[in-house]
Design a protein around this nucleic acid. Structure first.
Lengths: 184, 184
DNA sequence: TAACAAAAACCGACCGGACGGTATAGTTTG
DNA sequence: CAAACTATACCGTCCGGTCGGTTTTTGTTA
């Protein structure tokens, strides 16, 4: 009658599957995300996984959605009240997710290569954020430069590109913070 | 005897193979780069390709090397004499490669996901450039912010992330140019 | 220049294995 | 019982790589 009182089970299975996928991506690399491997990691069978996510695409889509949700959560937990709150939020979010999601994000990039549509939710989210950022400041170009710099930082971490050493890095981040705070 | 330098033949096979791979990546997406497909596109057989590139890894490595070489060529062709010449070179290079190498870069990202070592040459090159940039300016943090912004721009184009519209985009780039020129 | 051998370049059938997805039979739970 | 859920066997496909053989190029010698 009323909705079957077992969303917990079903949800848990889905969540377990997603974290299994994340575990595999982090431990063995992005290319190792296969239905069988994820199912095994999650402690159920291939059929069981395919019952929850009928295709691999659906699985990846769910994975991306989960990451996006967590990202947004982190972003909104930035307490600071500030005209460029969102910008600041993005920066702190990038800094905070210390390499935890590295290989995982790589997984997303990898799949995006073969299925660009999977990135659509991400695009929508970013468009939203960007709109808020631009409408929060009078210096749109300055805000955009900061936004790009944050994205650059994100990919620099992701691909383990050089960053000029920890010391300069710290100073650069400080500079970036100052740039953002001076925006208004 | 009149043996004009004819390593051209041998080289041509390799180059033909690489451009075939690029064509496939651009036309059909990054995931479609397979040995058979590339061989067919290049007009030779699977065995023939594997003669030139003994493994797929070698093929991808060659692909990345070629792209790096072209990138460097572009970068060094920036005429401007300027303390932040390299920085400016990166910016103009990104702007110039108008979506031509989009899916191709995606291919590289995709493979990087499964084989992170392939990015090592890229890392070396960037480390080199970054060193030059930092030693060319007195404002290291400012230069790094600009560098990150350029990288962010690169990935924004690559993943087709939002950019706030062509008009603002143009203004942002102008701002970025000004930032770089004011560096010294 | 012709003959010829050796090496380089290339061919394409084939193998082994992984992977996504299906079909179906079984099990739990309300 | 029925619906939700799970397990397992299996299929078709694709793909990277191997291997034995063939063609083309090159160097040498007469």
């Amino acid at each position: 009658m009323s909705t079957p009182p077992r969303p917990s089970e079903c949800r848990n299975a889905s969540r377990r599957i997603l974290s299994a996928a994340r575990a595999i991506a982090t431990r063995e690399g992005a290319g190792r995300i296969t239905i069988e491997a994820v199912a095994k990691e999650a402690g159920l069978s291939k059929g069981g996984l395919l019952y929850n996510y009928p295709t691999k695409r659906a699985l990846l889509s769910g994975l991306l959605a989960q990451m996006l949700a967590e990202h947004r959560e982190l972003l909104e937990s930035v307490p600071e009240r500030h005209p460029a709150r969102t910008l600041r939020g993005h920066l702190e979010t990038v800094l905070q997710s210390e390499d935890v999601d590295g290989d995982l994000s790589m997984a997303i990039l990898a799949t995006a290569a073969s299925d660009p549509q999977l990135l659509d939710p991400l695009r929508a989210e970013l468009t939203d954020d960007l709109g808020r950022i631009l409408s929060d400041t009078q210096d749109a170009p300055g805000a955009m430069v900061a936004f790009w710099a944050i994205q650059g930082l994100r990919f620099q971490k992701l691909l383990k590109l050089p960053d000029g050493g920890a010391d300069t890095r710290e100073r650069v981040i400080e500079r970036l913070r100052a740039l953002i705070d001076d925006l208004k």
